[in-house]
Design a protein around this nucleic acid. Structure first.
Length: 211
DNA sequence: TAAACGATCTGCT
DNA sequence: GCAGATCGTTTAT
């Protein structure tokens, strides 16, 4: 079932939530809600189960590494700005962090689908719930998020909203290397919920973050 | 304007 | 598990 009212679920994440170090925001986003409004005024979405941090400095895997371009401009906008880019003919959604002028963001890699599974199935042409939102490209297709949404302010948008959910306990969070990158593979900037079936990629042999 | 490159996914084994 | 498809963006010519 879709969600009819956001207020039933929680309160919107604030600018201050995103205005923190990117790895902190990446961890803090686990357990929070991503919602997307449909044409009929109902909301689809689910719970964030996997994120990655892309840093402003000393991170050659980050799109911002060589400075602002037409594509990555949203990474430099105020914290809480949606950054949507296309890659491999798919879309990925991120949220900018830290402060305006600083090129950093958190990639939302996977959610646990909760509201509007039927609509997501239609968009994904896929019946298996586990294959609806398990990976950044799948997630954007299921929620119909594309490049036209790049630059949206998530604090005020009436199309896409991030709401506070249940914060996982520290021992439920695992960390490891980011997926699919060719640089800075040693950095443990991927975070996901232990034992969650909707996490993409490998989930074995990981540990809890130090802080 | 041509070429190369991915923060990926799917279908097939 | 893996090879191949895929196309917008960036970088080189």
């Amino acid at each position: 079932m879709p969600l009819t009212s956001l207020a039933k679920l929680g309160s919107r994440l604030t600018r201050r939530f995103y205005a923190r170090p990117t790895d902190v925001v990446a961890k803090a986003l686990l357990g929070q809600w991503v919602l997307r409004k449909t044409d009929s005024g109902e909301w689809l979405g689910g719970k964030i189960v996997e994120t990655e941090a892309y840093l402003a400095t000393d991170d050659p895997a980050s799109h911002s590494y060589r400075g602002p371009t037409k594509r990555n401009g949203s990474m430099f906008r105020p914290p809480g700005t949606l950054y949507v880019y296309s890659i491999h003919a798919k879309h990925c959604m991120n949220v900018s962090t830290e402060r305006e002028g600083v090129g950093s963001a958190v990639l939302i890699r996977a959610i646990e689908p909760v509201y509007g599974l039927h609509e997501m199935s239609l968009r994904r042409n896929q019946q298996d719930p586990r294959r609806l939102t398990r990976g950044p490209g799948m997630l954007c297709q299921a929620l119909d998020i594309n490049r036209t949404h790049d630059g949206i302010d998530l604090i005020t948008s009436d199309e896409i909203a991030l709401l506070s959910g249940q914060q996982p306990s520290p021992d439920e969070i695992l960390t490891g290397p980011r997926i699919g990158i060719s640089h800075a593979k040693e950095l443990g900037l991927r975070f996901f919920l232990r034992g969650n079936r909707f996490v993409s990629g490998s989930v074995t042999n990981f540990h809890t973050p130090l802080n």
